[in-house]
């Protein structure tokens, strides 16, 4: 009895309790992180040097898988498709920014428009796939709408088969799906701008375009630039739209679609791992550039942007180097 109480007292005493708390609270999430992120990550690095399947023997092949990634027609071709998605994500950002700035001001029915444009974000990816397979089918939705606008069905391409246009069709669906999300995000950012700035603008007789250029844009430029850079890394790893709409056929297979096929259909696990690592390195580089841009132009947290510091130094030096 006595010993038990003293044990309890020992456990609840400050330092021990603190350690115990740190340990127990971190145990589960860190274990999960190790098992489902880091162990697979290091395993994948290992896999990339082998010729192997999920089950059975494996053979060490050195850098051959990596050579193959760069020489295989389909892998490298697939990386070029990222350009379509980069353009699409810029279009998406521009549209999101436009609608966000329109909807941030008093306008009738803004809630309805916001809801309508946002809802696609909540539709599940595979459903989006079916919706757009249907939408683009010959003589169906898109063709009908275009015929109303005076186009002739004969002149219209096969949206998902014609290799000159199908990547644009597929990339457009991701604009459709994610534009509303970007818009809601930007509305949040615009709303957090000090309202007195708009009032001051009103007093000075600024119209809404001027308010956009001189008040909104400067206040939310950080989030815009960050989203632009994020969309580049996002575009490298596009997977869902082509996977669910065309299955990667007719030249729409992006890098990850090809990788998925190699891993789970052809069971070329080594090659797929090498592909993943190559892309990961590309993403790391892009992220490092992003971090640098963030630090240089905007400053992290409360820190001043490096650019400002450098400018001030130069000014001081020009003045005669006095501190």
């Amino acid at each position: 009895m006595n010993e038990k109480r003293s044990f309890k007292a020992w456990v609840t005493s400050g330092k021990v309790n603190r350690r115990l708390c740190i340990f127990t609270f971190m145990f589960v999430p860190v274990t999960l992180l190790l098992v489902f992120t880091y162990i697979p990550f290091f395993k994948m690095i290992g896999f990339s040097f082998y010729d192997m399947k999920y089950i059975g023997e494996k053979e060490f092949v050195g850098l051959k898988n990596y050579m193959e990634v760069f020489t295989r027609e389909d892998c490298f071709q697939a990386l070029k498709l990222s350009l379509y998605y980069i353009v699409a994500s810029f279009v998406q950002l521009a549209l999101a920014l436009y609608f966000a700035s329109v909807l941030s001001f008093k306008i009738k029915g803004s809630g309805v428009f916001k809801g309508l444009m946002f809802f696609p974000y909540l539709v599940c990816g595979i459903a989006v796939g079916f919706i757009f397979k249907f939408f683009y089918t010959r003589g169906f939705v898109l063709d009908t709408v275009l015929q109303w606008c005076g186009f002739n069905l004969e002149q219209l391409p096969y949206w998902l088969k014609d290799t000159s246009i199908n990547n644009i069709s597929v990339a457009a669906t991701s604009v459709w799906r994610y534009m509303g999300q970007g818009m809601v995000m930007f509305i949040g950012a615009i709303m957090s701008v000090d309202a007195s700035l708009y009032e001051a603008g009103d007093i000075d007789g600024a119209n809404s375009f001027q308010k956009f250029i001189y008040i909104i844009l400067p206040s939310i430029k950080t989030i815009i630039v960050l989203n632009m850079i994020l969309s580049i890394t996002g575009s490298l790893s596009v997977f869902e739209p082509p996977y669910v709409i065309t299955g990667g056929d007719f030249g729409t297979g992006t890098y990850f679609v090809i990788m998925n096929k190699l891993a789970h259909e052809s069971q070329k696990v080594g090659l797929a791992s090498a592909m993943a690592i190559v892309l990961l390195i590309l993403i790391m580089i892009a992220t490092m550039i992003q971090k640098w841009v963030e630090k240089y132009y905007f400053g992290v947290g409360d820190a001043e942007p490096l650019r400002e510091i450098r400018k001030r130094k130069k000014r001081l030096e020009a003045k005669g180097g006095t501190r």
Binding site: P40, F41, S237, A276, M284, T287
Partner: peptide, 17 residues
């Protein structure tokens, strides 16, 4: 760092685990 790793790519080896 884990948030940088693209989920789809990781499934190649998560599947094995």
């Amino acid at each position: 760092f884990a948030s940088l790793l693209p989920g789809i790519a990781m499934q190649v080896s998560v599947y094995q685990i």
